[in-house]
Design a protein around this nucleic acid. Sequence first.
DNA 1: ACCTGAACACCGTTCAAGT
DNA 2: ACCTGAACACCGTTCAAGT
Lengths: 219, 219
Amino acid sequence: MKPSTDARPLRADAERNRTRLMEAAVAAFAERGYEVTVAEIAREAGVGKGTVFRRFPTKEHLIAAVVRHRLAQLVAVGEDLLGRDDPWHALREFLFACASSLSADRCLVEFAVSNGMPDEQVQAVQAQLRGLAGELVGRAQRHGVLRGDVTGDDVLLLLCGVNQAVAPLSGVVPDLWKRYVDLVLDGLRPTAAHPLPVPPPDEDALSNWGTGSTARCRA
Amino acid sequence: MKPSTDARPLRADAERNRTRLMEAAVAAFAERGYEVTVAEIAREAGVGKGTVFRRFPTKEHLIAAVVRHRLAQLVAVGEDLLGRDDPWHALREFLFACASSLSADRCLVEFAVSNGMPDEQVQAVQAQLRGLAGELVGRAQRHGVLRGDVTGDDVLLLLCGVNQAVAPLSGVVPDLWKRYVDLVLDGLRPTAAHPLPVPPPDEDALSNWGTGSTARCRA
DNA sequence: ACCTGAACACCGTTCAAGT
DNA sequence: ACCTGAACACCGTTCAAGT
C-alpha cells in the first residue's frame, strides 16, 4: 500500500493512520463506489475525520490515491504480458485483466466514466497504461492478427465502455463482461475490418482526459 | 412535454408550473447531468422548490420523468426504422440515433450507468426499446447480415458502453461515438463471428435492471 | 507534528403558514 | 388545491483547541 510518496517520512503514528486509511478506503470504495462517506471511512480506519483531510486535502484526492493503487497493479500485469509470444492472446489477457479489475471495483468504473482526476500521479499511471495498450496493439498489428486502423486508446476506451455498460448487472451476471470483451475483439480482427469514417482521438484530445475540470464531489 | 400522466387534470396554474419545471429540468439535466440542484431548476422554472417536491416526490422522480421523455423519442425513431427495407442499415441508424441522443444528454448517460430507476413508466419505455432492438436484430439476422449469437440486449448494452466511454471526451471530439459504434458493428457481422463462451443475459437478469435498488441521490 | 470533533456551507426533503 | 420559504438532516470541509 505504498509508504507515502512524499520526500520526508511521516511520524510513526501518522504513517500508521495513513495505512489504515488507505486500506479502509480501498475496500469501501471498491464495494460501494464514490458514494461512501468520508466519515464512514474514517470510522472504519479508527481515526477522526479531520485526520482524513490532513492527509488528503479532498475526498477526491483520497479516491485518486485508491485509483492510482489499482491502476498500478494493471500496469504490472501489462508489462508482464509484453513478454508473451502470442500477441493476440497477450492483448486479450491484458483486456481481461483490466476488465476483471474494473468489474471488481465500483470505484474504478466510476473513475473511468469521470473526466479523470486532477492528480498528476494518477495521470502518470494512466499514461503508462496507455503506452502498454499501444505496444500490445502494435505488436498484434505487426503480426497481422489485429486490424491496422485502431489504436491502443481505441481499445482502452472500448474496454471501459464494456465494463461501464455491464456494471449495473454485475450483481446478477458477474462475468458478463467476458462476453462483450470477446464481441469487441471480434470487431478488431483484420477479417472484420470495414472503413471507419471517424478517426481515432489524437494525443491532444486524450491528454486532457485526465485533467477533469468537472468536479465529482461536493464543493 | 406531455400534459401529465395522472387521471384527473391539474389546476391551471399547477399544470403551467409542471410544464415549466419539465422544460427547465430537461435542459438543465441534459447539459450538466444529475448534479444540477433542485433549487436551481426551481429557480429557472420560476417556482419555489417546495413546488418541485409537490409534483415529484423525489429528485430521482424528476429525473425519471426527463429520462422517460427522452427514451420515448428513441422508441418513435426505432418504430419508424422497422419499415426500412435494408435491415443492416435500419439497425445501424437505430444505434446512431440512440448514440446521438445519449451523447447530447448527460443525464441519459448517467441513467445508463445507473441501476435503472424504480419508476414503472421508465421501465415500460425501456421494455419497448428492448423490444425494438430485438426486432431490428432479428430481422438483420434472418437476412444473414448479423451474427446469429447476439441479442437485442447485447446490442443495446454495447451501445450504452460506447457512449459512456466516450462521454468524457464529448467536449473535445463530439462525434467520436460514431467510430466506436462502427467498430462494434464490425464485431457483429457474421464474418467476424468467433465463439462466445459466455451466454447473453437472460430475461431475469435484465428485468430487474430497471429496478435499481441503489440510491443515486441523497437520502 | 499530528489528532480531534465542533462548526460551517451546501443540498435534498419536509411542513406550517399562506392564497 | 396549490404555492412558498423557513427548518431539518446529511455530508464535505475547516479550524481552534488539544497532545
